[in-house]
Simulated scan of single mutants.
Amino acid sequence: MNFIHLVKHGYKMSLSLNTNSEIDEPWNANVGQKILSVYFSTLSLRSEYWPDDVKLDGFESLLMDEAYAAFKGQRYLNLFALNNDRMRACPDKLISICNEIKGYRKILTSDKITLLFNMYYHLHTMDGVINYDSTIDGWDYPASDYKFDRRDTFIFNRSFHDGLNYVIETFPDRFRNDINVIILIYLIVIFNGDTTGLKCPEMIRHEQFSYIYLLRRYLRTVCESDCEASDNHYRLMVKIEHVRLLTEKTKNKFLRLLHEPLLETITKAITLGVPKRMPQMFQAPHLKT
C-alpha cells in the first residue's frame, strides 16, 4: 500500500543507469566556460605540444598518486551519521583527507572553513550519486552501519529526489567503479574558487583547474580516443554542476536536520585539528604512466 501511495504521487519504481553514454547531454554554458578556461591556461600547454602522448607525465602522475594516497583508495566519504533520527555531521575524515593534499595545506584557515562549509552538502550528494547501489535501490554505508532507501529521499523532499534521480541516471555508469575518477571529482568539488567569502579565491581556483585538467588527461588513458575522453570529461563536469545546483536548493532543509550547526562543527574540527595520518606510499591503480 505504501508503494502504491508513493507511485500515485510520482515515485519512480526503478532507475535506469547510463551504461553506454548515449544519453544526450545538453550544452551547459557554465561548464563549457570552465573547461575552456582550463584548456587556455598554462596547464594544457604541454598537451598542445605532445597531443599524441596518452601517458601521464611525471607531474601528473605525482598529483594523481598524492590524491589517491590522501583518500587511501576509498570512495565513501561518510559525511553524516544518524543519531536518534537526527543527522550529525562527521567532518573529521574529510578534513584528514584534505590535510594530505599539499594545495589544501597552503590555504588560509578561514578559507578552509568557508570551502568545506559551502561544499559539504555538494560532496554528500555527489557521494550519493557515485555510490548509489541499484541492487538495493539505495545506499549502504558500512562504516556507519546503516542502509538508506531511495524512498526515504522521496519522502524527505520530492524535488531533491527527482533531481537526484536525474543525475544518477545520466551519470556515466562506467566511472562509478573507477576510483581515480571518483577521487578527482571529489577534489574538483572541494576546490571551488567561485565560493562566496573566500579571501584567496585565485589560489583555490588554480587547484581546481589542476584537477579538472588531470581528470581530462586521466580519461585519455582509459578511453579509446581523444574524442571519447573529451565527451566523458564534459559529461562528468556537467554532473558536478547539476549536483551543485541541486544541493543549493535543498541546503537549508538539510541544515535544520542537524544536531549542531554545520559551520560550528566544521570550524571546531579544523581549528582544533585532526590527527594527521602517518605518511604512506600508495600507487594509484591502472595508471598508464
Rank of each mutant, 00 (worst) to 15 (best):
S44G: 01
D24W: 00
E48I: 07
Y49V: 15
F40A: 09
D57L: 05
G58I: 02
L43F: 03
W27S: 08
P51M: 00
S21N: 15
Q33H: 14
Y49N: 12
R46I: 01
E22L: 10
D52T: 00
S37H: 11
L56R: 07
N30K: 14
G32Q: 10
A29V: 14
V54L: 04
N20S: 15
S41T: 02
R46W: 00
N28P: 00
W27Q: 08
L36Y: 15
E48D: 07
K55C: 12
A29R: 11
K34T: 10
F40D: 12
P26E: 03
L56W: 00
P26T: 03
W50L: 11
Y49G: 09
V38L: 05
Y39G: 04
Q33P: 04
S21I: 08
L43M: 04
I23R: 09
W50P: 06
G58F: 01
T42G: 10
E48N: 07
E25L: 04
S16N: 11
V38Y: 11
L45V: 09
S44K: 01
L56C: 06
L17S: 07
F59E: 14
W27C: 06
N18M: 09
S41K: 08
L56F: 01
K55E: 15
L56G: 07
T19L: 12
S21G: 08
N30P: 06
V38S: 13
S41I: 02
I35V: 15
Y39E: 13
N30G: 11
V54F: 03
L43Q: 03
N30M: 09
S14L: 10
P26I: 04
I35Y: 05
W27Y: 15
W50V: 13
N20Y: 12
L17Q: 03
L36Q: 14
T42A: 13
E25S: 09
T19H: 13
R46E: 04
Y49Q: 13
T42W: 01
V31E: 02
Y49W: 04
K55I: 03
S37T: 13
L56I: 01
E25K: 05
P26S: 06
T19Y: 11
P51H: 00
K55A: 15
L17W: 01
F59I: 14
S47D: 02
D53T: 06
G32N: 13
K34R: 14
S44T: 00
I23D: 07
W27K: 13
S21R: 15
S14W: 03
R46K: 09
W50K: 14
K34Y: 02
E22V: 07
Q33L: 14
G58V: 05
A29L: 13
K34S: 11
N28T: 11
E22N: 12
D57A: 10
S37I: 05
L43E: 05
L17R: 09
N20T: 11
V54Q: 06
E25T: 12
L15Q: 05
